[in-house]
């Protein structure tokens, strides 16, 4: 696998795993409109993941036959959904990262990443808008909704730092003009997130704990259950179709 493919796989894994998580809301969301919205977001992420995984290898083999240590998604996207407040808090943190990431990648020197990002940036903008509106509505809502979205935010917050980690792979791709430096994306993310949290009357969590490991295949306990559900049909019935 080339360095660009390894990086492409990281981004594809982020999209696929978050898309799978959001799909768990099917028929369980608070309202019918929200059910449709969450599944539309999941579908966008799945479509982006297919383009990215397809550029690395066989998309089905990558999605359904890789064992846990071979997955390179960030830990944030694999965390359990929790309640609706936690799901929306996580979506805000992820979308606020993906919007500037895709915007930067749209002018990548890698044609695959540039093509995928040019589409994804428009979709991620909708996701960010949607998550922001909900975080404001819940945070600036009732005492109950405020407490629950704050608790959800506090729970997912430490995992956001991993999105902005750098390593020799990322550094080499930054130098080649293939991707943007995480240090450039971070202030954009902070500005977006802090603006939304301020309007939502929520407190920006403080945490010195920065769990990491997803990019090198060390995942949380929740991820094994996600993979089992996502992969069991394909593994039990190889090549099945309908």
């Amino acid at each position: 696998m080339t360095p660009v493919q390894a990086y492409t796989l990281r981004l594809g894994d982020d999209c696929l795993v978050l898309g799978q998580r959001l799909s768990e809301w099917a028929a369980r969301a608070p309202t019918l409109e929200e059910d449709v919205a969450l599944l539309n977001i999941a579908l966008d992420l799945l479509g982006t993941a297919r383009s990215l995984l397809g550029a690395v290898g066989d998309e089905d083999a990558l999605a359904f036959l890789r064992a846990e240590p071979d997955w390179t998604n960030a830990l944030l996207v694999e965390l359990d959904n929790g309640d609706f407040g936690r799901t929306m808090a996580r979506q805000l943190l992820v979308s606020a990262y993906q919007v500037p990431l895709w915007a930067a990648l749209a002018s990548s020197t890698d044609p695959v990443l540039a093509g995928v990002a040019g589409k994804a940036v428009k979709e991620a903008t909708y996701h960010l808008d949607h998550a922001s509106a909900w975080v404001v509505r819940l945070g600036d809502g009732t005492a109950e909704s405020h407490a629950r979205v704050q608790a959800g935010l506090d729970g997912v917050w430490p995992y956001a730092a991993e999105l902005f980690e750098t390593d020799p792979l990322v550094e080499s791709l930054v130098q080649q003009g293939i991707t943007a430096a995480p240090a450039v994306l971070l202030p954009v993310w902070q500005q977006t997130v802090e603006r939304v949290l301020a309007e939502a009357t929520l407190t920006v969590p403080e945490s010195s704990w920065r769990p990491t490991g997803g990019r090198s295949g060390r995942h949380t306990e929740a991820f094994g259950y996600l993979l089992a559900e996502m992969q069991h049909l394909h593994r039990a019935h190889p090549g099945a179709s309908w």
């Binding site: 428009k122 903008t125 909708y126 960010l128 808008d129 922001s132 509106a133 404001v136 509505r137 977006t192 939304v196 309007e199």
Partner: peptide, 9 residues
């Protein structure tokens, strides 16, 4: 062209 930026309330 493209989606509207974050509008909030």
């Amino acid at each position: 062209s493209g989606p509207v930026a974050v509008t909030l309330s």
